[in-house]
Structure formats: structure tokens, C-alpha cells
Design a protein around this nucleic acid. Sequence first.
DNA 1: GCCAACGTTGGC
DNA 2: GCCAACGTTGGC
Length: 141
Amino acid sequence: MAFWLFKSEPDAWSWDQQVARGPAGEEWTGVRNYQARNHMRAMKLGDRGFFYHSNIGKQVVGIVEVCGLSAPDSTTDDPRWDCVTLRAVAPLPRPVTLEAIKAEPRLKDMVLVTNSRLSVQPVGDADWQVICEMGGLSTPP
DNA sequence: GCCAACGTTGGC
DNA sequence: GCCAACGTTGGC
């Protein structure tokens, strides 16, 4: 299983809204960046991801699961853009802030730190564990 | 609100 | 194919 990180401005789409969608999930529309799209195309059902609030909060707030493979993005007619479908799995008992991530030496190579503009990014297995523990999940769901 | 970093576009 | 101009993102 692979791990990812999805960024969203809570003004546009928040963790609470994601949770409200329930097990059916919601299409992760609006990505207009090739790198981010390619990551979504590489995702498999059951892959897990962090849900990160950018701009407001600047913290990882929850864990999502890929429940629909990459498919044409319904919010555009441009055939270049795809999106996956995500469902909420669990909130982090203690959200992990960008500040805390930057302060953790083991996370210095995270894409979130090295390329802050990429909205869908891969997360290494070790980094996943570290952030889950920082967030209060000793056993990731 | 500002601005640096980055990605994309389009003229040549 | 290069690169200047432009637009967007996102931290501060």
C-alpha cells in the first residue's frame, strides 16, 4: 500500500466536508498540475493519504483512503485532467502542524517541506509512521 | 496583503 | 526548443 498527501484549502473543501460525505467519498476534483495528476493516476484502491489544510490551519487533520481510481475530472471538459475518489477514514487526535513537521529532523525531506506547492504528493512509509505517531495514532487505522 | 517559488503559456 | 511573461499557490 502506498501513502500520499492531499492539500486543500479548508475554505474550498474542508476535512469536515470530507467526513460528511461518508463512505461514498468525494471526487478530488480541481487538480490542474501534471505532477499531481500523475500521482493520482498511480494510486490504487485502498491507498491511504493525509488530508492537509493549507493556508488556514496549515496542518494534517485526518486520514483518507482511495476508494475510486483515477477517472476524468467532471469539473472540466479538458481531457488532460483526472481525479481519484477519497473517503475519510479517521481524524488525527492531534493535528500535526506544518511547523511541527518542519521541526522534526526525520521529516526534513518530505515533499511538503521541499516542494510546498505540490498539491498531491507521495509520502514515504517512514514519514507516514512518524506523522501518525505525532498525531496521536500509535496504530494507524 | 505581500511576495517567493514554481508551473504554464506562447512568441520567436 | 528556448525563454520571457504571466498566473497561481501557499507560507509568512
